[in-house]
Design a binder for these strands. Structure first.
Length: 306
DNA sequence: ATGGTGGCACCGCCA
């Protein structure tokens, strides 16, 4: 956790008294700086292979919370010790051998951790943490971290069981009352690799991707139902207009991902309406796609005035 | 032109 004051304090101020109001003859103490909580979401594509990239994110951006997807790692082999060295002593994990898997690294202790299974598959695709009194928050904030099924190649649920599973997963999440409007009177955040780029400007070519899994109308509709069921606000699009191109993923298969720039916005940050209004900054760390041995997704970081 | 790359775990599956 850090305050906006520290974040924006100019270097020249470092040797001056903290409370400048005393110099100005104003005896009122400065108000406590607003509590800022920054949350990153990142599909890491194997947390063991890329734990040093998590360290780079921590060193360069220091988000308070890091939500990871595709950790591809059983819980007993999660690199929690390294996370601790990076400044994240609190780790909540829902992993499995070989694929999927989600985790939350935190500088702040959790009040609660929970995991939800979907479609009776035993897949590790969700974990939720609540920050509350133990993190110094009067009003708790719950963060849901999702890894939605990619859905395979053929966008037909009758022909492709993986696409069927993707739609079923979204339907089941939409029916899950914990994500519904009534519960969202509380402060909630939903992040993750949702594997759907819903808007035209979320993909490099709307026309060419209409039949490509991740941008087909049927899945965009399903994602819209999930969003509407909870009245979730698309926080990223509150910062970048919906007409402006915005990507978080670039395929490994491009000869030059940056030059062709054929990206998609598969990773999302949603918040309940009351909490979305407290979002202060949003960054898509595009440069992370150019790091050594990168994930094909980049981190998205949003800070909230908690 | 209908591929191309990458990770895991095992020689195929998933993304």
């Amino acid at each position: 956790m850090r305050s906006s004051k520290e974040q924006f304090a100019p270097k020249a101020d470092l040797n001056l008294p903290r409370d400048l109001s005393s110099l100005a003859g104003d005896s009122r103490p400065l108000k406590d700086p607003p509590l800022q909580i920054s949350i990153a979401t990142w599909n890491i594509n194997s947390v063991r292979l890329r734990i040093d990239l998590v360290g780079k994110l921590a060193a360069e951006h220091s988000p308070d919370i890091i939500c990871l997807q595709e950790t591809k790692c059983p819980d007993d082999r999660f690199p929690a010790k390294e996370a601790g060295k990076f400044g994240y002593p609190y780790v909540a994990i829902n992993g499995q051998k070989g694929w999927h898997g989600v985790a939350v690294l935190s500088k702040l202790p959790f009040d609660e951790v929970s995991k939800q299974g979907f479609c009776d598959k035993g897949d590790a695709r969700h974990i939720a943490v609540t920050l509350g009194a133990s993190a110094g928050l009067d009003d708790p904030v719950t963060i849901h971290n999702f890894y939605v099924p990619a859905g395979g190649d053929i966008p037909d649920p009758d022909e492709n069981p993986k696409f069927r599973h993707k739609l079923d997963f979204l339907d089941e999440a939409t029916r899950w009352e914990l994500l519904h409007r009534a519960e969202l009177e509380h402060r909630s955040v939903l992040v993750g690799d949702l594997n759907i780029a819903p808007l035209e400007a979320d993909v490099w070519s709307h026309k060419q991707l209409l039949d490509v899994v991740s941008h087909t109308p049927v899945e965009v509709d399903r994602l819209g139902r999930l969003q509407a069921a909870g009245n979730w606000v698309d926080v990223m699009r509150n910062f970048i207009p919906p007409s402006e191109r915005l990507y978080t993923w670039w395929s490994y298969r491009a000869a030059d991902w940056a030059a062709s720039d054929r990206g998609r916005r598969l990773d999302h940050v949603w918040a309940s309406p009351a909490f979305a209004s407290r979002a202060r900054t949003m960054s898509v760390l595009r440069e992370a796609r150019g790091w050594e041995r990168p994930s094909d997704h980049v981190p998205v970081v949003v800070s909230f005035e908690a």
